[in-house]
């Protein structure tokens, strides 16, 4: 009888784990908007593209220092994830997108307060492992069929930029993998699985010594524009606009430029 019970509980445990495992690995650190510190603090929730993580966190600290009693919370993720969440009613005050296409989705649903403003640009750069096993020096090198090249899938912004770049240059890349995000591309490059990956300039800067960046002159043919806007559903519309203004100010632009972003 005890044996039987043991079998039963093991099976139940297995089923529970099955259920948990099946839905757990979503990857994005989405969701957690909400109210941070108590003490009657005002919380400003900023939905921002994952590529803005370090720069916006820095700007958030500056904003908190300048505004007593204001707590800035970030929800970083893929721009399309963030838009979906906002469309489903997630409470947010500001939205900063990594491309205009996702901002267009937001404005199509009239979730914005005011007109979105462009605050930064980003261009593509080749990332290779530090020892550069494939000897990549130019964008045209990526067409080599023996080279293991990893790019973003055309469905995500960095992949759309990659497709445009291939079209503009006439270079035809045969990737070994089309990843979901720049993080996944960088992962394949830093682990040495791929000989080269195509990501944004800012991603190469952020990755530091883990990758070597190979800039290429054609990169200015495809420029990704980052727009930002205060949200219609915000309960702190003035504060939200002030945060947008900070990003657009000289201070904000300096922080962004240091991370490798271009001026809008």
């Amino acid at each position: 009888m005890t044996r039987f019970r043991r079998f039963g509980s093991v099976t139940v445990a297995a089923l529970l784990v099955l259920a948990a495992a099946g839905c757990g690995d979503d990857g994005g650190d989405a969701g957690s908007g909400g109210d941070g510190g108590g003490n009657g603090e005002t919380t400003l929730t900023v939905f921002a593209a994952a590529s803005l993580t370090s720069t916006f966190e820095q700007l958030g600290e500056e904003f908190e220092a300048a505004h007593d009693g204001v707590d800035v919370q970030f929800s970083f993720g893929g721009s399309s994830d963030l838009v979906s969440q906002l469309q489903e009613g997630a409470p947010g005050d500001v939205f900063a997108s990594a491309d205009t296409a996702n901002m267009d989705k937001l404005t199509a649903d009239d979730l914005q307060a005011g007109d979105p403003q462009d605050f930064a640009t980003n261009t593509l750069e080749i990332a290779t492992p530090p020892d550069d096993p494939g000897g990549v020096t130019s964008f045209a090198d990526l067409a080599d069929p023996d080279l293991k090249v990893v790019v973003c899938a055309p469905e995500v912004p960095c992949g759309a930029a990659t497709a445009k770049m291939e079209e503009a240059t006439g270079v035809d890349i045969t990737p070994v993998s089309e990843e979901q995000s720049v993080t996944d591309v960088l992962g394949k490059v830093t682990s040495g699985e791929a000989d080269a990956g195509l990501v944004y300039v800012t991603d190469v800067t952020a990755a530091g010594d883990d990758v070597t960046g190979v800039p290429f002159p054609e990169s200015d043919q495809v420029v990704n524009t980052y727009p930002i806007v205060a949200l219609e559903g915000s309960e702190h519309r003035d504060l939200a606009q002030e945060f947008v203004d900070l990003v657009l100010s000289q201070t904000g632009q300096d922080v962004l430029a240091k991370a490798g972003f271009g001026a809008p």
């Binding site: 990857g27 899938a153 070994v176 990843e179 979901q180 699985e193």
Partner: peptide, 12 residues
């Protein structure tokens, strides 16, 4: 999902 996208990549 998770182990596949990390280990194998993603190509149609």
């Amino acid at each position: 999902f998770g182990a596949t996208i990390t280990f194998a990549g993603s190509l149609q």
